[in-house]
Amino acid sequence: MKPYLCRVIENRILWADAQLLIFDAPDPSTSSGQGLARALRPGQFALARDATTREPYLRRALWLYQTEETRVAFTLPAHDPLVARVRVGDLLDLLAPLGRVIEFGANARRILLIGEGTRVAQLIALAHAAITQAREVVLVNRGENIFPAHLLSPEIEYRADDALSAELIAWADAIVASGSSELYRALAEAIRAARYRLEPGFARVIVDAPMPCGDGLCYACAVETTRGIKLACADGPAFDLIELERKH
C-alpha cells in the first residue's frame, strides 16, 4: 500500500447508481499516477479521501474499473458523499493497491462472472483482464440496473439474467461473483446442483463491507471463514465461496 496524490479528470455517472472517477496528472511530489496504474490489478481497490476536508470522515472504497497508461478509472456508488464533493481538477489522496488480486489458474479457460445490479461494475476490470489473457468470459448481470453492453469488449459474452444457469455453471472453469449474501448462498446451491460438489478455488465471491482502515487494523471488515477470522480489506475482498458459505 502506497499513498498517491492524483488529479480527478472525470467524475460522471457510469450508469444507474454507479459513478466513475477517473484520475490522471499526478502531483510530481508523490508517487505518479502511472505508478498507480501499474500497481493496481483486478480485484483490488483503493481508499480515497479529499485531504482538504474531514467530510466525509472515512476514506471511500474505489473499485478498480479500468487502467490505461497513466489513467485509472474507479467506480463507487453515485450517492457516496465524496462524489458530490469532488470536482474535475481536484487532487485526491489515494491509498493503493489494497486487497488481493483475483487471478485465474492456467487451466481456467472459461470464466463466469456474476454481478448483482451495479455490483457488476466491480467485475468489469476482471472481465477485460481475462479476455486479454485469451480466456472465454461470460458476464451475467442479475437484477435491475443492467450494465450497458456497449461498454464491454465484444469478446465478452454478456447476459442479463436473474437465473443462475446450470448450463453456464457446468461450462465454467472458474466463477467470480459480486452481490448479496443471498446470491452467494444461491450460487453455492446452484454449483452443487450443476457440478455435484463445490470444489475449493472454483468460485470466489466479493465481500463489499465497509473498510475504514484498509490495512487490517480496525477489524470492522472481519469475516468468519472456515479458516478462521479473515479481513475483507487485507485477505479479500474476494474469498473462496466454500470458505464463506459453510459459515453463513
Binding site: Y57, L58, P210, C218
Partner: peptide
C-alpha cells in the same frame, strides 16, 4: 453493518 457514518465521524 459494523460501521455507520454520521456527519464528521463514524459510529462503529
Amino acid at each position: 453493518p459494523r460501521v455507520i457514518e454520521i456527519p464528521g465521524g463514524v459510529l462503529m
